[in-house]
Write a protein that binds this DNA or RNA. Sequence first.
DNA 1: CGAGTTATGCTCATACCCAGCATAAGTGGG
DNA 2: CCCACTTATGCTGGGTATGAGCATAACTCG
Lengths: 298, 298
Amino acid sequence: MPAASTELIAVIVAVTGGDPRVLTIADARALPSGSFESGHRSLQAGLRSWVEQQTHQPLGYVEQLYTFADSDRGAEAAGRTISVSYLGLTREARVTGQAAGWQSWYRYFPWEDQRGGTPAMICAQIAPALRRWAASPVQQQRAVITFGLDGRPWNEELVLQRYELLYEAGLVEEWHRRHAPGQLPQSLPGEPMAVDHRRILATGIARLRTKIKYRPVFFELMPDSFTLLTLQQTVEALAGRLLHKQNFRRLIDSQNLVEETGAMATETGGRPAKLFRFRGDVQDERAIAGTKLPLLRS
Amino acid sequence: MPAASTELIAVIVAVTGGDPRVLTIADARALPSGSFESGHRSLQAGLRSWVEQQTHQPLGYVEQLYTFADSDRGAEAAGRTISVSYLGLTREARVTGQAAGWQSWYRYFPWEDQRGGTPAMICAQIAPALRRWAASPVQQQRAVITFGLDGRPWNEELVLQRYELLYEAGLVEEWHRRHAPGQLPQSLPGEPMAVDHRRILATGIARLRTKIKYRPVFFELMPDSFTLLTLQQTVEALAGRLLHKQNFRRLIDSQNLVEETGAMATETGGRPAKLFRFRGDVQDERAIAGTKLPLLRS
DNA sequence: CGAGTTATGCTCATACCCAGCATAAGTGGG
DNA sequence: CCCACTTATGCTGGGTATGAGCATAACTCG
């Protein structure tokens, strides 16, 4: 029975000032992580303990993301490493220790921020490089669909697919580290991270962008009271695209998720906005939602 | 750096004759499983190898389900076990070895089959027991919502929540094994499984019931050609509830997933039905779907 | 006071989903 | 051959959700 060490890796997300942030260590080069030890009551408890030890950031909601053990991860000499990754949501606090800090996640994935329209780098840099790389029509098609080229719609959920495509095409530094060490092209898109942390971050972003559509996860990201515009901007930061204001409001209040606090926000720059808070009692009822099959009554 | 052994556990699903089946070993008491070994190229490869070795059932689509390491799992003396579970879909083949076989999953979760209306056992057995157990209004509420009592709608996705509620209420044998060994009430609902395999199965069913609503997973479960009724019955088997026939058909062909083979099925008992096959070329296009945010054009 | 900014209410067309009606095309029994 | 029964398939009519915009209200700043 060969034993393997188990590693815990955290993608901790906050939204501050309209920017989606991820908690990092090692001068923005790595995600908080540590090994699963016998003192840990559970995987999740071990993860919380490592994050708090490395960054002193308190955690709220945490869910499991994915477990990796592929042999393309670091040294495989003395037993392999299993990596269990988690996604967590919080509000940003001051962090300390181990060169810890909060980074905009678009630093690692600049092409994912489509709030100001399609980033220039996609047309100028990524699309041409992908077309040069794509040998078969199938690969062409894959590039066109995942990046929404040729006028196709942008699908913000395909974060991981886009990263993997860039990886296979040799357009991220992580690929060169493994397959062509030494020679590194200048100006590859997005900052790299240690080992496969950037891939794990992509997995986390994708999960969050999917989840936000059917479950009100922004709960954990918002302060106690907020305006609807702030809430909208938080969602926009995560989704990487802009939303229709009036329809967003209708959506929110049709869900009955929030209630007015009675107070108003005055520093809006325009008409003062009502302040809202989340209704505490909605947790369970949420569970009832969700269906897309043509069900039958009886 | 404490090492732990890693275990792979498989929830392999097929649908045969309108029955959702799960692949088991040990005379229907356990799921196929084995330890992750250095010879395995990846977690998934290890899993496939164990399943084929233990049951000789060929596998198709496989995806990761969840990773467990909670200390409520078996012996925690000499190093802990990490369990990585997978969900797989196939067509049922003849299996052999290790007391392997296919079981209807409703054998383990009889309350989950609502195709013939709410099973009598819910009103007769489960609901009263839960009401007796529920101490606080919160617990009452939880029981009422997860089991759709008091006329509330049944949500077929809450498979895991229902199992966990029954567990906490001491209404499944697995709870008694851990917390009150020796004395076992008669007639607890559903057959038990080894260790926490029934919980893992619940996780798999829940995942499948969720997934079937936004991705055409039944691909792997169907023979090469089939009638629309057979397809509908397959979905009904998984969802545990009946669907509106005409609307189901409209849904299917609006998705452009299938095409007519030209042939007809004659043994329907009524008017002969057209036979269909899945269109092979639809894979990528699927990716574009899925959104529920009020997006903006520009 | 006017320009600029944000908040908020409402409308309208469209797409999609629920539920059922109606008809077609087989089977088996008298 | 006719009838009762079963399954297949087409279509309609009402509801609800969604996309896109118009219009107005209530502030700040110069």
